[in-house]
Deep mutational scan, measured.
Amino acid sequence: QEELVKAFKALLKEEKFSSQGEIVAALQEQGFDNINQSKVSRMLTKFGAVRTRNAKMEMVYCLPAELGV
């Protein structure tokens, strides 16, 4: 569980995922086979993730800066 949270936060820091499906796929690539869209959705809510525009003006998920991840 701890490893999943770390990987999840690291992915969001990249600010390149525009959908929950993309986050699920990226986590599965890292070996988290039991991850699915509903789990990702709950984690996004739990950590207060928001959708914002990145440098390329794409809408992407990211974590609020005050979490200091």
Rank of each mutant, 00 (worst) to 15 (best):
L12I: 06
M59H: 05
R53Q: 13
S41Y: 08
A10K: 10
Y61M: 02
I35W: 02
A55C: 04
A10P: 01
Q20Y: 08
R42D: 15
R53A: 09
E14R: 06
L67N: 13
A26K: 08
E3N: 12
K56M: 10
S18A: 11
L4V: 07
R51W: 08
Q28I: 13
S38K: 13
T45W: 09
G68I: 10
A49H: 02
F32K: 01
E2V: 13
Q28L: 13
S19K: 09
Q28M: 11
K13N: 09
A65N: 11
A55T: 08
A26N: 05
K6E: 13
M59K: 05
K16N: 05
L44D: 01
S41T: 08
R51S: 05
Q1V: 11
K13W: 11
P64W: 03
R51G: 04
E29V: 10
T52Y: 09
A10C: 06
K46I: 13
I23D: 00
G21H: 12
L63Q: 03
E66H: 09
G68R: 06
K46P: 01
S19A: 07
A49M: 03
R42Q: 15
M43D: 00
T45S: 10
D33H: 13
Y61A: 02
E58N: 05
M43Q: 01
V50I: 12
Q28W: 09
L44H: 00
A55L: 06
E14V: 06
L12G: 00
F17P: 03
G48K: 08
G48W: 03
K9N: 05
V5I: 13
L67M: 12
A25P: 00
L44I: 09
V69K: 12
K6V: 10
M57Y: 09
S38A: 14
M57N: 15
I35D: 01
A25G: 06
E2S: 12
E3C: 15
M43T: 00
T52C: 15
V50T: 09
K6T: 10
G68W: 04
P64Q: 05
E66T: 07
D33I: 14
K13D: 06
Y61F: 07
T52R: 15
M57I: 03
M57L: 11
A10T: 08
Y61P: 02
